[in-house]
Each structure stands twice: as structure tokens, then as C-alpha cells.
């Protein structure tokens, strides 16, 4: 019955009379993008004023927000673009070159 897409993407939805190839939102659709990075953002928590600008501007949503609004970085997926270091008004984020 129905049309099948690439392996593993059949949709079993009882309301649709056919099988359609559908992708679902999931992290890591392009792999572990942290490996693209040539320098990593490091947050100096003593300087951070919790203004949340880095969290707002991060294109990847890899700057995460704790309950108390302190931020930390998801290095698994951070692409190292450096936007957070540039928007930080107090210079609490520095880009440190990756080694190896």
C-alpha cells in the first residue's frame, strides 16, 4: 500500500491513507556540527551580567540558559561563529582556538 520514501522515513499515521516521506525536526540533522569549529567560546562567569544577549543572538541555539539566567555553551553543536563574543557588552566571552 502507498508510496515509500527512503528507508526509515515511512509515516504510520492512521489518518493518512498513504505513506509519505516525512522528516521530523531533530538535533544533529547535519551531524555533530561542533567539529566545524576552529575556536570555542569560553564564558567567564565572574564577568557575566546575565543580560542574555548571547542567548538571544546565537543562531544555533547552542547558548543555553540556566534557571538563574546564567548561560553555558553546548559544545556538541556550537559552530564557533563568534557572534556571542561580539555581542557581549562586558567582554565575558572569549574565543579560544581549538587544538588538534
Amino acid at each position: 500500500m502507498g508510496v515509500s520514501g527512503p528507508p526509515g522515513v515511512l509515516v504510520e499515521d492512521p489518518r493518512t491513507p498513504f505513506h509519505a516521506p516525512l522528516s521530523r525536526p531533530e538535533p544533529g540533522s547535519a551531524g555533530r556540527t561542533g567539529t566545524w569549529r576552529d575556536s570555542r567560546p569560553v564564558i567567564d562567569e565572574s564577568k557575566c551580567t546575565r543580560c542574555l544577549l548571547c542567548w538571544l543572538y546565537c543562531p544555533e541555539d547552542t547558548i543555553l540558559r540556566r534557571e538563574d539566567d546564567m548561560v553555558y555553551v553546548d559544545y556538541e553543536y556550537c559552530k564557533g561563529c563568534g557572534i556571542c563574543a561580539n555581542v557581549c557588552p562586558v567582554g565575558a566571552i572569549t574565543m579560544v582556538p581549538e587544538r588538534g
Binding site: A30, P59, E60, E76, Y77
Partner: peptide, 19 residues
């Protein structure tokens, strides 16, 4: 507070569209 972005996508670093 919810994490609305989808990390690990194929966009270039610094992409304005994912923002």
C-alpha cells in the same frame, strides 16, 4: 525559555536565517 532552535543543522556558521 524553551530551546526553540534546532542545533546541528546544515546552516553556515553565523547564519541569519536560523536566527
Amino acid at each position: 525559555r524553551k530551546r526553540y532552535g534546532m542545533p546541528g543543522n546544515a546552516a553556515c556558521p553565523g547564519c541569519p536565517e536560523t536566527m
